[in-house]
């Protein structure tokens, strides 16, 4: 099945018949089997699926962190497949932002320095107005001088969100962003992500296994056994949970 919703809007990221195969010979494992998907600009998409369904692999391939065995990946008008190291570096600087489950802040830098790190790595100055907007949105203005160790988990993740947003990338990939947070902090972060999509037109692709988290998205794509098996538009926690339950009973899916 191919996710085809929103053909009218230009896709921020697109996968065309992506295969990802690990190992060779007997030990060969296919993590992705011919996945095709589009992720429209200005929308919040969640990728769900049981453990080992290939959801993280799909995200890594989309973000250019991992190579694909077959098929192509595009971000905006750039074809990611086949890019060399410098091309990938440029892609990460210009078009892609990341939010990680483990926050991944540099412990030695203050919150502000962490937020500005991608800009300073690329040797750019942030747009001051946008920077102010981001800081106010994440609500960290009084915490900018603190080190990560002086911040709570939720605050750290909001710093990481600000870091991803400040460069205004084409698309932000979030890998289980609430996986390490309590439910209240998690809700804060998810609200914040949804707002950045609604108010600022940011594109976000989030991998999660939490139906509540997925319910914050505009659309949910379900993966099982390396293939897209279902999708939901305007999901709620209940509809997501239902779909997940259905996935647990193996369904023959037409490719």
């Amino acid at each position: 099945m191919t996710a085809t919703v929103g053909r009218h809007a230009q896709a921020a990221a697109r996968a065309n018949d992506v295969w990802k195969v690990y190992g060779t010979g007997e030990a060969q494992v296919a993590a992705l089997r011919g996945v095709s998907a589009e992720f429209e600009r200005g929308r919040f998409t969640a990728i769900m699926g049981p453990s080992g369904s290939g959801k993280s692999t799909l995200m890594h391939c989309l973000a250019g962190l991992d190579s694909v065995s077959r098929g192509t990946v595009q971000i905006g008008d750039t074809t990611v497949t086949g890019l060399g190291d410098s091309g990938l570096t440029k892609l990460r600087r210009d078009k892609v932002g990341f939010i990680f489950q483990q926050f991944n802040l540099l412990p030695t830098l203050t919150a502000q320095e962490n937020i500005l790190l991608p800009m300073s790595i690329a040797g750019r100055k942030p747009d001051p107005a946008w920077y102010d907007t981001v800081i106010d949105t994440v609500g960290l203005r009084d915490r900018l001088g603190h080190r990560p160790s002086q911040l709570s988990g939720g605050q750290q993740q909001r710093v990481a969100c600000a870091r991803a947003l400040v460069a205004r990338p084409e698309v932000i990939f979030a890998d289980e962003p609430t996986g390490n947070l309590d439910s209240r902090s998690g809700a804060e972060v998810l609200n914040f992500l949804r707002n950045s999509v609604r108010e600022h037109g940011q594109t976000i692709v989030m991998v999660t296994h939490d139906p509540t988290a997925a319910a914050y998205a505009d659309r949910v794509v379900f993966l099982a056994d390396g293939q897209i098996v279902s999708e939901l538009i305007e999901p709620t926690a209940d509809t997501v949970l239902d779909t997940m339950k259905k996935l647990d009973t193996p369904v023959e899916v037409a490719g």
């Binding site: 962190l65 190291d85 410098s86 570096t89 990460r92 600087r93 932002g97 990341f98 990680f100 991944n104 540099l106 790190l117 991608p118 790595i121 690329a122 870091r163 460069a167």
Partner: peptide, 11 residues
């Protein structure tokens, strides 16, 4: 992480 947020190998 540095690489993921855009640092080049040379950096």
């Amino acid at each position: 992480l540095m690489r993921a947020i855009g640092a080049s190998g040379r950096q």
